[in-house]
Amino acid sequence: MTEGTLEFDGTTKRYGDLLALDDLSFDVRPGEIFGFVGSNGAGKTTAMRIALGVLSADAGQVRWRGAPVTLEAARRIGYMPEERGLYPKMAVAEQLEYLARLHGMSRADARTATAEWTERLGLAERRRSEVGALSLGNQQRVQLAAALLHGPELLVLDEPFSGLDPVAVDVMSGVLTERAAAGVPVLFSSHQLDLVQRLCHRVGIIRSGRLVACDTVDALRSTRRQLAVDVRAPWTPALPGVEIVSTEGTRHVLELAADVDDQDVLRSALAAGPVAEFRPFRPTLTELFRTVVTDREDAR
């Protein structure tokens, strides 16, 4: 395995009768932005907490650089917990310096890093303000600075975009892309699937503690053979192996079984009337997520 990769290997966690993580295995490679997607309670936060060593797994392992994540290793990780947390009564700069030093930085380095990141995130004027006195957006920026200022070699961010204003979303996206370009593996979870689709190289969809899909965004969007067909006439695509996914006016989205020739579908459509649109259809991540989650729900 490549050096610097974060690997989940058969990670399992139970809370009493609830199986929170069920044999979870995937990896995040250096320079890759990995999007972690799933409904609330699917297990994303639990997985991330285990990666940081805040929680311990009941079975399986999380390895980074080929070894289980020790506390010393965890100090090299940039972590943003789902539940944002800072000391509300501490000044921004003092707090960031303190957190940087907990990550093992010297006093001087902590001071420099704090100055740099507050400048970069537009918090320079706020260094002496108490965190509790800042606007929510600015508090999020401080939180981001706290995750980044020790120059982490791995980023684990739980819902980094939630609660951000559009400008901060851009700043955050920029930072993630830049860190990944520098060779840092980036794992983040989000409900904003359009962002995930735009930013991530690979996506893992988790449901009830199990990874139900994990691939590049492109591959995931092309898993199913789907066609968008618009025929300006009444037409029922009643062909064997063809299923209607959705219909909007005269436009149908069809899903084709593997052995169906799409040219047969086209011929059938032309026979019915003029064809205004005929092209492969790629669902957005949002649509995909919906079907993946619902399908499995039905399968149960």
Binding site: R49, L52, G53, V54, L71, A74, R75, I77, Y79, P81, E83, R84, G85, L86, Y87, P88, L99, L102, H103, A146
Partner: peptide
Amino acid sequence: SRVVELLLAT
């Protein structure tokens, strides 16, 4: 303040 989770990661 939930800061404890951040602390316990280090």
